[in-house]
């Protein structure tokens, strides 16, 4: 009996200590620190992913399959679904290119142009951290489906050309994973909502494995992304991210 009481006492002490430490940690974090840690959680030097995107609108569903490679700020996406087969999108530091197999010309695209569904070129290839373009403000804490989250407002820094001038982000307090993002215009008109409801550990790094993006302007328009396979921090030849390689 004495042993049980001692064990309980030790356990309770450890629990209280951990809770206090955790509370102290979260209590002192600033909005910038929280966002920075959220950026770090999903940080990796390179990645290869295989994914599916299901776009839904009033005309029904459309499935797009693709593979993607990323290294630093470079990003390459190659489509495998029938309707898009052979198309490639490349983002380098300077530009975004879209290659179509039946076109002799490689198209140069703007960040805001739509690729498929609700995904713009900027969405699929934005490698810069949130704090590079946004000022963060901690709005408070919130509970999303039983998970305690930080609620942070991101407002675009002056003279930054971003697709979403205002965002409200929910970041899980426990692991700093982004759980929900609401995107707004400069005048706070809702544009899109993204919910990440599955995060997987791929070789020690976390990656959003399932996310749902809902258009807040057009009713019933959504894009759902499933990451079926991923390899993180792997060796990818820099040549893969050149314009010349697109046409090969």
């Amino acid at each position: 009996m004495k042993r049980i009481i001692t064990s309980l006492a030790v356990g309770l002490t450890i629990f209280i200590f951990c809770a206090v430490v955790a509370a102290a940690q979260t209590a002192v974090l600033t909005a910038e620190e929280i966002v920075s840690r959220a950026d770090d959680v999903m940080d990796y030097s390179s990645a290869y992913t295989e994914a599916r995107m299901i776009n839904t609108d009033r005309f029904g569903e459309k499935v797009i399959a693709y593979r993607a490679w990323s290294k630093g700020t470079n990003f390459l996406m190659e489509f495998d679904s029938d309707a898009e087969y052979g198309q490639k999108i490349l983002r380098t530091d300077e530009r975004i290119y879209h290659f179509f197999p039946d076109s002799e010309t490689v198209f140069t695209k703007s960040k805001g142009d739509s690729v498929v569904g609700l995904i713009s070129y900027d969405d699929i290839s934005n490698e810069s951290g949130m704090l590079d373009n946004y000022e963060a403000e901690l709005l408070g804490e919130d509970v999303l489906e039983g998970t305690a989250c930080f609620k942070i407002k991101l407002k675009a820094k002056p003279r930054r050309r971003v697709a979403y001038p205002v965002q409200i982000v929910w970041i899980v307090q426990e692991n700093f994973v982004i759980r929900r993002v609401e995107m707004f215009t400069r005048s706070n008109k809702p544009l899109k909502t993204m919910v990440i409801d599955e995060v997987k550990d791929f070789g020690g790094s976390l990656l959003a494995a399932h996310m749902l993006i809902t258009d807040e302007v057009r009713r019933g328009v959504t894009s759902e992304i499933f990451i079926d396979n991923a390899e993180l921090n792997i060796d990818i030849d820099d040549k893969k991210f050149t314009r010349r390689e697109l046409t090969r």
Binding site: N55, K62, D82, A83, E84, H98, F100, D102, V116
Partner: peptide
Amino acid sequence: AARSANAMT
């Protein structure tokens, strides 16, 4: 018609 983008020369 497949609700995708396509380009041709």
